[in-house]
Design a protein around this nucleic acid. Sequence first.
RNA 1: GGAGAGAUGCCUGAGUGGCCGAAAGGAACAGUUUGCUAAACUGUCGUACUGGCAACGGUACCGAGGGUUCGAAUCCCUCUCUCUCCGCCA
Length: 423
Amino acid sequence: MLQVSYIRENREEVLNRLSVRNFKNPELVDQIIKLDDDRRQTQTLLDSIAAEANAAAKRVGELMRQGLKEEAEAIKTQTTTFKEQTRMLGDKLSAIEILLQAELVLLPNLPHQSVPKGFGADDNQVASEHGVIPQLMQGALPHWELAAKYDIIDFELGNKIAGAGFPVYKGKGAKLQRALINFFLDNADAAGYREMQPPIVVNEASGFGTGQLPDKEGQMYHITGDNLYLIPTAEVPVTNLYRDVILKEEELPIKNCAYTPCFRREAGSYGAHVRGLNRLHQFDKVEIVQVVHPDHSYDVLEDMSNYVQSLLKKLELPYRVLSLCGGDMGFTSAKTYDMEVWCAAQARWLEVSSVSNFETYQSNRLKLRYKSGDGKPQLAHTLNGSALALPRIVASLLENNQDEKGIKIPTALVPYTGFEYIN
RNA sequence: GGAGAGAUGCCUGAGUGGCCGAAAGGAACAGUUUGCUAAACUGUCGUACUGGCAACGGUACCGAGGGUUCGAAUCCCUCUCUCUCCGCCA
């Protein structure tokens, strides 16, 4: 959520930067400013009347104590008009505030200056490409067929006990999951991220804090009996650890990581390009989250991007880094890099990580601030990224590393799997 | 699931209608002093909105929402959450 004061003071800039996203509703900006004018006026009036009413009430108390009953009664009758007015203005003020809030959450984050203008995925910039595209042997298979051939992932069995998008990992397939999780966590730890194990359900306030609620409600599994949501990413619980918190400046940066299962309803997305592991309702992911001083957030974004790339290099996967254009960026992000891995049998790039700087967009909702010495509390910047999500990594490992003997495990991962081949 | 207790500032905790934005202690920060570690003393020490160049004001907030009252942290109602005991269970 953007800050109203910033919108007021930088109207032109806000409009310009929103246009980088091709934001369809720029008149919202002026509506918000107008509502805020209204809010201020109403509040000023309400405050002055409340001040009079308070003073009158105080006088009544004093007079009563002095035993001057009649004088007290006289003032009492005057205060009834204050009462009506404050009630009216109070109602008006809260109505305006609700409206203002409702409009404010409709404004997406402002893209950073470096974000290219664009409408969708085709306008993203390829920032860099790494690794070698493997030449597959004759008769190479896509990962869902490999998974069946080696009996390591069972989609049918998952259908039976839960539904489509909930695969069962078996034998070396299950061990590979465990290996990847530990590999990612150990690397994050070595890079200075503190491991957290949060709940994988969250309440409404948490869903709101990171922006899943109210607009993306349909994307989360909702436990109606207890009004809890299954997390779509560890970003939600881990970032919400700092909801309503004022940190000391020295505590920054905060670097956390967490492994969690992630649950996404992915309503309405079925078809050939979401086969196998390409899109699931439940998957495993290690997430990295940082809370940083605003001066450093863009350096940190590069750090996080480099860190994610280091994982892909260790796994010997060919990948590319996209700098997302305004139109393709998430609603809450100011700048995002996507990492895509080449899946050789499907012959396509698959997104395995998304690293974003949210600047103050999340922290404003979360009321996540820091305080330096004697200064006033300031909103911190938040960033997060997948490091990494498992299914598409597994898909590309299977497809890219297949040979006559089976599936070769990358050297860096062998200490974690305990085997060199799936066969 | 049954019974009970509670929710106050960074923490502990006092406060049952006006003198309470809130005692006291602790923590933290700043200063003074004693030749070090440390102690003592003094001061500062919530957030948001709002007016003002500023100095300095105003308003709101004692879990949330409503009500009673000239006046509510304090009384009443509803909700949420936490804790304790019992039951069940990992």
